[in-house]
């Protein structure tokens, strides 16, 4: 059955919408294309951990605790070897991890027959400003440095392959290289950082931007 579905023409379609498809099937009710979708809450959480190399893949056992901040932000705490997937985080109705809740993890008390996907500013704010996401971007940058070395083009290629599962286009590569250079210059002019520290900060800012990008969050 799975083979039948997965080898079908319908299943293997691209998600691109042409003017014609848009006229004939604007809402994709007839499956004229693969539906583009945003990553689900757990996918966003897990993927950021995975990409940044902080994911502890240990399975089972008691759930990992969460920390509730005074302002109401709920953040999972790390397990001994890192952070585990969201499915292993303690789920308490009154203490849903904020990132999961913001990205539409359903409430626990009522039945959920279909997950809604919202697109709201709170999601952008979380990924842009949250300290944990920043931390993960820095870890991602360190991993890039270890794996791809100091050459910025090699770093960009590696980042795209890891986070987006594809190489960058020439345009994206150039934009990335320029951005890295500019980030580094700002940090150098800003204070007392060494060239190396500045370049690491630059790389983290770039990685953080990629984790915020539509290309990262939307699957098509």
């Amino acid at each position: 059955m799975h083979r039948l579905i997965m080898t079908s023409t319908t299943y293997r379609q691209s998600s691109r919408v042409s003017a014609e498809l848009d006229t004939l099937d604007p809402e994709n009710r007839y499956l004229a294309r693969m539906p583009m979708r945003r990553m689900d809450a757990e996918e966003v959480y897990d993927t950021i951990l995975y990409v940044s190399g902080l994911l502890d893949e240990t399975r089972f056992g008691p759930p990992d605790p969460v920390e509730v901040r005074r302002d109401g932000l709920v953040t999972p705490l790390p397990a001994p070897r890192g952070y585990r997937r969201s499915v292993y985080v303690r789920q308490r109705r009154s203490q849903m991890p904020t990132l999961l809740e913001t990205f539409d993890l359903p409430q626990m008390n009522p039945n959920c027959v279909a997950r809604p996907t919202s697109t709201v500013a709170a999601q952008a704010l979380h990924l842009l400003n949250n300290g944990k996401v920043r931390e993960r971007a820095e870890a991602f940058a360190n991993k890039v440095r270890q794996s791809a070395g100091n050459d910025s083009l090699a770093q960009i290629d590696w980042i795209y392959l890891t986070a987006l599962s594809r190489p960058p286009t020439q345009e994206e590569r150039e934009i990335g290289a320029n951005a890295l250079k500019e980030f580094q210059e700002i940090w150098l002019n800003h204070g007392t950082l060494s060239r190396e520290q500045a370049s690491q900060k630059a790389l983290a800012a770039y990685c953080h931007t990629i984790l915020n990008s539509a290309a990262f969050l939307y699957i098509d």
């Binding site: 919408v17 003017a19 583009m36 934009i175 770039y206 931007t209 990008s213 290309a215 939307y218």
Partner: peptide
Amino acid sequence: LLIRLDRIHQRKRPYQLQL
């Protein structure tokens, strides 16, 4: 940078209201 990368992404994916 984010706006630029998103615009490139969006340009290749017209008619996607989600984007």
